[in-house]
Every structure is written in C-alpha cells, then in structure tokens.
C-alpha cells in the first residue's frame, strides 16, 4: 500500500468535512478497498473511516414500513436483524463472502462500489429502494449507472438505504466458487403494484432490471410465466468462468428458481 493518513470521525458532518480534502477517500468495511490499496490500484492521500459513526449503524423500520439500514451496517448485522422483516434480504446478506468478510463489509460500501458481481445492488434495485446520502435521496432506478459507476458525487456518503418490504421475494445466486461473488444472481420482489426483477453478475453494465420478466410475472407470479422468455447474450460478461451465452441462460434459470422459492 502507498502511505496515507487515517481519520476516524464520529459524525457524518465530520466525515464530509474530512472528505473535502483532495484525494481523500471514504473507507467503510474495507473488504474491497483494502485489497485494492494493496495492489496499488488506488492512491488516496487520506482514508476517512465511516465505521465509527453511530448514526450510520443498525437496522430499523420507519413510519412508512420501510426497512432502514445504516450505511455502515455490516452484512452480518443485516443478516441477523432483517431476518423477520425482510427474509430474502437477510438471506442475501448471510451468503455474501464468508463470515469474517460479513463482519466487516457494509451495505453502504457495497452499494457505493457497485461491483458488477456484488449481491446487494440486485436487492436495492429489485426492491425499488432509496439510497440516502448526506445531502439527498436517490431512487434505485437513478442510482446505478454502469460498471462501478453510480450517481454518487465525489465525497458523497451513503448514510442509509431504505427498502420497501415486498409481499414476497427471493434471491438466487449462482456462486462463482473461488470469489463467492455472483456468477449470476437474480433478486425477484413482488409488490402489490407489480413485480421487479434485478440481475447482478451478468452484464458488462452492472446490475439491471429484466423488464420482460417483470411484465410476465406481474400478470402471473409463477415460474411458468417465464416459459419462452430469454435474455440476449449481447453485453453480457464473458470471462474464464462463463461465456456471455452461459450467463444469459443462467439469468432465466435463476429467475425461475427465485420465483419458485418466493411463491
């Protein structure tokens, strides 16, 4: 790692002020950022830890019935505390990485990084969640903007993610066994006004909604509703783990499994 200064503020306001410096970068659980620093792929002058900010920790329910998760809440806490309110989200959190990674890695860090194979972006997008930052609220549909790209501005911090709780939901992840990231992951969420389907791991543009499946499932929430539907391999990721065609095929398979498990 290159040398950097370290600060650990205790409020969001202090963190925002610390991040105003040139080349300062926020550090959440560090499960992606620290390996990145070790490879010298980033050279921040200062890391501003977000893990000491009490107002960014924990899971609660607001007056609208949404599940509100503090940006610096580790995956293991989400897995435990969302279990009764939003079981599909809890299950997703409990299968990210491994136990030690889940004790450090945070939802805000994952959503800010927007790795194309990360699990959380699919839950955020399929739930129609709201990404809350230190200065605004961003709808999931406006938030994800491509590979490692989001609506976040420089120095903007995710303080909370608010999830509407669906009537039924499920996440199916086809694990890339070495990294434990999703080779393909599909999150299906059924709300009173329709079904949302979000796919991670598959596309060169990162997480996306499979609108054709959403339409079919909104009319008939059963695996059979997906018969005959397929996703084009254009724009899908191709690497040593799977071809674009393989990933496109897996999307339909995992979507069917998610609907079967949710219904």
């Amino acid at each position: 790692m290159y040398a950097f200064d370290f600060e650990k503020p205790t409020t969001v306001a202090e963190a925002v002020a610390a991040l105003a410096d040139d080349e300062a970068q926020p550090l959440s659980g560090g499960q992606t950022l620290i390996p990145t620093l070790k490879q010298r792929l980033a050279m921040p002058s200062k890391l501003v830890s977000l893990t000491g900010i009490a107002e960014m920790q924990g899971v609660c329910t607001n007056d609208a019935g949404q599940l509100c998760i503090g940006g610096a809440t580790p995956h293991a806490v989400v897995a435990a505390e969302a279990a009764s309110k939003y079981p599909a989200l809890s299950a997703l959190a409990s299968n990210i990485g491994d136990p030690a990674v889940r004790n450090r890695g945070t939802i805000g860090g994952s959503v800010a990084n927007n790795d194309p194979a990360a699990c959380y972006p699919s839950a955020v997008l399929a739930s129609g969640a709201t990404v809350v930052t230190n200065n605004r609220e961003i709808a999931a549909d406006d938030y994800f903007q491509g590979l490692f790209s989001t609506a976040l501005e420089e120095g903007e911090i995710i303080t909370e993610v608010r999830f509407p709780v669906p009537q039924a939901a499920n996440y199916q992840k086809f694990v890339q066994p070495a990294s434990r990231f999703a080779l393909v992951g599909v999150f299906v969420a059924k709300f009173a006004d329709g079904v949302r389907v979000a796919v991670t791991g598959a596309s060169n543009d990162g997480v996306f909604r499979w609108t054709e499946a959403e339409k079919a499932l909104s009319a008939n929430f059963s695996p059979d509703a997906l018969n005959g539907l397929s996703v084009s391999a254009d724009g899908m990721i191709g690497d040593l783990h799977g071809t674009p065609e393989y990933r496109a095929h897996l999307i339909a398979v995992m979507t069917k499994r998610a609907v079967a498990a949710a219904s």
Partner: peptide
C-alpha cells in the same frame, strides 16, 4: 475478522 484486511488504526 481477517486481520490482513483491517487497518491497525481501525
């Protein structure tokens, strides 16, 4: 936790 992926100051 994995101590190779946590800063001492944390």
């Amino acid at each position: 936790v994995k101590s190779c992926t946590m800063l001492a100051h944390e």
